[in-house]
Design a protein around this nucleic acid. Structure first.
Lengths: 200, 200
DNA sequence: CGATTCACCTACTGGTCGTTCAGTAGATGG
DNA sequence: CCATCTACTGAACGACCAGTAGGTGAATCG
């Protein structure tokens, strides 16, 4: 139960966000096993002992990074599906949401893809549950489009194709590079909705 | 200069292949930084000291795994392009080759995607060169198709879309699972050549 | 004004990391 | 039969790993 935010509490909260931000950046650049607690502490201007005042273990830190990465786009997908718009509109929104996350929270999404396999019990179970929920929602969105009957193919394989197309962006997209995030976002959304899952 | 293969030499060669195979499997499962030299030695029934009789460093081992993974499909792509068939036939062959590697040499390709960023100098340069060569060839194949004018879009983005679709298979495909490699291979080749890069 | 809490520190633990060294059993070759 | 080579070993190297014990000054509390 949160009480009135004193200046002390507010500072502590900000520091916790800084922990997750630093861990996300380092895990993305060097990988989970390639990042030491000392690296993280140094990045935050602390000693390793001080870091352990805030987090229980390196695994907990990974869990927080993963949760922080997946939560916003899981919640938005829930909302998109709950809106109950027609299948193709829902699809476009779901694809837009997924791609937008990959492009704007690149580090968090990269860590999600690359490092989640290093998450151990007991955190693992909860995390897998959330991932399964996302998959289930996304599969439903695609299945609804295919149910209209105007695009042939295996729903699972089409879903995996679309996800690959979107998820791979984190491997090559460079913020501030030759192409803007919006440009990639619009082009790829179009590729998926109009070509990959376009009416035959 | 290789002399006549005595039984001793043949055994040594076989052992070296075993090193790469074991390293590929372990790096794929646990990651480069998550795999210790001791893990590798144990897998091979050796001590760490013995392992260092055969390889100079862990980095060299990574380089060998990466080279071993990329070489066959780079060579095949060279041959496909050199064949000089018409653009769409060439495309289909290039896509087929790429996907086939991802599905059949899954571990090697996974290590290639996930761990190559941990390769340091001096190996890094040669490796990057080979990757750039592959990219260049593949881009050329796609550009040739687009040059025919019957499919609109940015060649680079279409290439990245196609690569994402193919490369992502290593993250979900399970050999011996519900779907055969051939089934995925045929479906995805079709998705790319007929829908993603299909005539408008 | 004490008592307590907070956020941090120094100093250290036992263990593991990649790597090296000196040596050796056994096969090969002159 | 003796010199050489191959493939390997036990033991150790310094560096680093995740994590901990115990203490310190400053802010917050009744």
């Amino acid at each position: 139960m949160p009480d009135t935010p004193t200046s002390r509490r507010r500072q502590a909260a900000a520091t916790e966000d800084a922990f997750i931000a630093a861990a996300t950046a380092l895990f993305a650049r060097r990988g989970y096993h390639g990042t030491s607690i000392a690296d993280l502490a140094a990045e935050l201007g602390l000693t390793t002992a001080s870091l352990y005042y805030h987090v229980a273990s390196k695994q907990e830190l990974l869990m927080r990074v993963l949760t922080n990465g997946i939560t916003p786009y899981l919640e938005r997908l829930e909302a998109i599906v709950a809106a109950g718009t027609d299948p193709r509109t829902t699809l476009r929104a779901a694809v837009h949401n997924h791609l937008s996350s990959a492009l704007h929270d690149q580090d968090a999404v990269a860590v999600f893809h690359r490092e989640r396999r290093f998450l151990e019990a007991p955190h693992r179970e909860l995390h897998e549950q959330r991932v399964a929920r996302y998959d289930q929602l996304f599969t439903g969105v695609i299945a609804a489009v295919l149910a209209e009957g105007d695009v042939p193919g295996d729903p699972d394989l089409l879903r995996l194709a679309a996800l690959g197309l979107m998820n791979w962006t984190v491997e090559w997209y460079e913020p501030g590079g030759r192409r803007s995030a919006d440009e990639v976002l619009e082009t790829f959304t179009g590729l998926i909705t109009d070509r990959l899952l376009g009416p035959a």
